[in-house]
């Protein structure tokens, strides 16, 4: 990673340290500023590609995705965390569409933002009627938070330096990058591949969904039965 990227990473990690719970309001605002500055300088240090408009769209979407992810992990209230996660999903979907993966982008938006995040909000409302719980305002112990944030920052730096091999052009490409650009038959090709090459996997995923459904119901019923039998000897 270049110098700007390293400084951006340091800013990002410092901002996260200030913004994640176990913090006061003032340090949270300062942390948000530092996180934004860090992300912007990391993005600015990345190598340019393509025409300026495409570059601009990429910057906006990447800032939205990474910024919303950082906000999601530093919000105290789980409702806000879920909503910021949905915003980050919208950014992700935009990035996927920019990579000519239109169907996957739309599926991400529909399945994640439409179904999973809404289910999350249902559970939050079931479990947490109002206000902030103690465990939302506090993180783990004094040493645990800096240590884990440092570990996460190291992970970012390692990933960044490992990706350097891509920039050198060491990795041979399997195609010339033209066939995916043909938007007119994108869905048809996707469907062809999905139901010919990956047919067995599609069947397996269908079975997995059924098993997960049965498992979720079994978990709920089983939990209730255990609680009922435990209460009997007390009475």
């Amino acid at each position: 990673m270049s110098g700007g990227g390293t400084w951006g990473l340091i800013l990002l990690v410092t901002g996260l340290f200030l913004a994640i719970p176990h913090s006061t309001r003032r340090t949270r605002n300062a942390g948000g500023l530092l996180i934004t500055a860090g992300i912007v300088s990391i993005l600015y240090a990345l190598p340019r590609f393509g025409p300026w408009f495409e570059q601009l769209v990429f910057w906006a979407l990447a800032l939205l995705t990474v910024g919303a992810s950082a906000a999601a992990i530093s919000m105290r209230s789980p409702v806000y965390a879920a909503i910021w996660f949905a915003v980050s999903l919208l950014g992700t979907a935009g990035l996927l569409v920019q990579q000519h993966a239109q169907f996957v982008g739309v599926a991400t938006m529909v399945v994640y933002a439409g179904a999973i995040v809404v289910t999350f909000l249902f559970v939050v409302m079931l479990a947490q009627p109002e206000g902030h719980e103690t465990h939302d305002r506090l993180s783990w112990g004094r040493l645990a938070k800096p240590a884990s944030i440092l570990a996460g920052g190291t992970l970012m730096a390692l990933l960044g330096s490992a990706c350097g091999a891509v920039l050198n052009g060491d990795i041979p490409r399997a195609g010339d990058g033209q066939s995916l650009l043909d938007d007119s038959s994108e869905l048809a090709r996707l469907g062809n591949e999905l139901f010919s090459v990956h047919l067995l996997a599609v069947e397996l995923v269908g079975t997995l969904l059924l098993v997960a459904l049965v498992g979720a119901i079994a978990l709920m019923i089983h939990g209730r039965e255990r609680r009922a039998t435990r209460e009997v000897p007390d009475a």
């Binding site: 992990i73 993180s139 645990a144 992970l155 990933l159």
Partner: peptide
């Protein structure tokens, strides 16, 4: 990678 690492940090830090 940034999104992945942010998720890791959140998973470890939040309660």
């Amino acid at each position: 990678g940034l999104v992945f690492a942010l998720g890791t940090i959140g998973f470890i830090v939040r309660r």
